[in-house]
Design a protein around this nucleic acid. Structure first.
Lengths: 129, 129
DNA sequence: TATGTAACGAACTTATTTGTTCGTAGATTT
DNA sequence: AAATCTACGAACAAATAAGTTCGTTACATA
């Protein structure tokens, strides 16, 4: 495996290349939400737990620069922006799903029932409102 | 998506879980080499460009702790150890291959012919010997 | 006797990623 | 007139990941 250098970034192998593009803590949560519908900035922020404004902005900028998402700006006040998956982004969703399913298996091996945890969380949220 | 905490580690989603297990710079290169044959410590070190002793050891320890690889020690001097994929590790190879193939596509989109780069590197090595 | 060997551990430094805090525009609502 | 709203930029701090250097075991060979 050679070192591949593109735009000042070095990749050791094809998997590394993918992870530099859609890896990190926040890219997947963003892409995953956009798979079904268009989101506004604030919607993403509200929907993704723990994400900071800086990381959301940074993540969106990088995904846009790499062609996974598109941005539509409405020049009104207060501002309005919409983020959507591109075709390239849609392709990414397919392998994200594969990795996700594998993750669910791995968690099961470790005795974690993820679906159950999600259900519990939904219940907890309902109670608190 | 809830926060899942296992052994003091927090995961935001199933993909995150996978990446904490087999992500990072060096786990994939190690697993990838073990897919076909057993390797000794020094063999891995020689075969994986740029890896430091510390990162190799750390990577092997973590992969072993998570059940992806097994370690066989021969109590002789100088020491002899062999690392091999477990069944769990073999399963991991399958999705690594999927990600890898996607990576090759992505690189092509960016005008990078990875296979060609590998061929060039092999040639360069032959020349230098 | 000095040197080499395989597989590391431990301490420390550097680099990369993530997170926190503060500030801005300009129309709209109180 | 002051506060609110949305979508950020910028400076700085903290946390995590990766890399560097030095030391160790205990036998075999030059």
């Amino acid at each position: 495996m050679p070192d591949v250098i593109v735009n000042n970034e070095t990749f050791y192998n094809p998997v590394d290349f993918v992870l530099k593009k859609i890896g990190g803590t926040w890219k997947i949560p963003v892409l995953w939400r956009l798979r079904k519908k268009v989101f506004r900035y604030t919607e993403l922020q509200k929907d993704i737990p723990h994400i900071s404004q800086k990381m959301l902005t940074q993540t969106l900028r990088e995904l846009e620069a790499d062609g996974f998402i598109s941005k539509k700006t409405f020049a009104i006040v207060p501002p309005h922006t919409e983020y959507a998956l591109t075709e390239k982004g849609t392709k990414a969703i397919i392998i994200i799903e594969t990795i996700r399913n594998y993750g669910l298996e791995l968690m099961k091996d470790d005795g974690i029932d993820y679906e159950e945890l999600v259900r519990e969380e939904v219940k907890a949220k309902k109670k608190s409102t």
